[in-house]
Design a protein around this nucleic acid. Structure first.
Lengths: 180, 180
DNA sequence: TGTAGCATGTAAGCCGTTACATGATTGA
DNA sequence: TCAATCATGTAACGGCTTACATGCTACA
């Protein structure tokens, strides 16, 4: 016990710090709803792998027999997360942006192809913004300083600002490409 | 020949569409300088793996014997890239943002810890902005519509806007956290 | 009664990293 | 002449995905 865990382990563990205990299945849903915006949405099978590992390390405690096992974070888990936050190096964000990648080599295709791609990305962005707004709305009422969803709501606001700005940039790019 | 390649293959291949031919070593440098901002900076060994694969598929042509082999994109490679741009689904960006992830569970540590992390990220951002500005500056003079670095400069501008906006958001977050 | 959602896993395999290994060339 | 940089690979392995497999429960 005690080796360095992959960041995704901490991410999953972090999802259990909001006062409830969840099944693997529910954890996957929470990850899809929130974590996916700034980390990843691990595959179902990956969630179970993480839960097994976290369990082995005593960072979560399974409860319930047979089908439908829920997991709660332990005191050790909470301490371990806090230590991770305090001591481990943070690292710079990694962005894998297929739209930017394709724009880079836009000289290989007709401008209309690039513009169509950007428009399609705009639609995808709108959907993401909508989904994130819903998440943000669901945190309202418990998002003041000191309340349980304070930090999640800060992150959600950040995400919304990010998407909104990207939306504006894409629109600007379309404009510039169409002028040519 | 002709199976779907991983996106990173296309990314590496794309770096060879700017009129020059490079060694694996030089390709790595170019990736570190530019690709890393919106895709990844593949490890040296990965570059060589990609070059072997692209070579097998006839998308790049090696030139030069023994030590120091340069690679140029072939006509097939250019066609393949164009087809990829036109036909394959684009996919939404994936962001792995350790700062956002840690902010999410900020309730586990003293506010000062979170603020310190954000400040440190601010410094990292400044370095990235500086590096990207240099890249952008190096494209000047060939960045007008129709010129070879038109698209790379569009992407660089986008990246700068993105980092600048993130910088402002982080400063705002620090302000909000310090008010408490 | 049957279909969608809940729930839990195993196996194979790809992508990519780190570590290791080797040697030539250039310039202080 | 010695260190930094250029240059090219191989091996082991970790993280994560996709595909496969199984079965219960709620509800229309």
């Amino acid at each position: 016990m005690g080796q360095e865990l992959p960041v995704t382990s901490y991410a999953v563990l972090g999802l259990l710090t909001f006062g409830d205990e969840l099944t693997g299945y529910e954890l996957k849903q929470r990850a899809d709803r929130t974590l996916r915006f700034y980390w990843v949405a691990p595959a179902m099978s990956q969630i179970y792998t993480e839960l097994a590992r976290l369990s082995d390390e005593g960072l979560v405690a399974p409860r319930g027999e047979g089908r439908r096992t829920t997991y709660a974070i332990t005191d050790d888990g909470r301490r371990r997360l806090a230590r991770w936050l305090e001591e481990s190096p943070v690292g710079f964000p990694v962005l894998k942006h297929p739209v930017a990648l394709r724009l880079l080599i836009g000289h290989l295709v007709k401008p209309a192809v690039t513009v169509a791609m950007l428009r399609s990305h705009l639609r995808a962005l709108d959907e993401e913004i909508l989904a994130l707004r819903e998440v943000r709305a669901s945190l309202e009422g418990a998002d003041a300083p000191g309340q349980p969803f304070r930090h999640p709501s800060l992150v959600a606001d950040w995400g919304l600002a990010h998407f909104t700005q990207e939306r504006a940039t894409i629109e600007d790019l379309i404009r510039r490409l169409e002028e040519e």
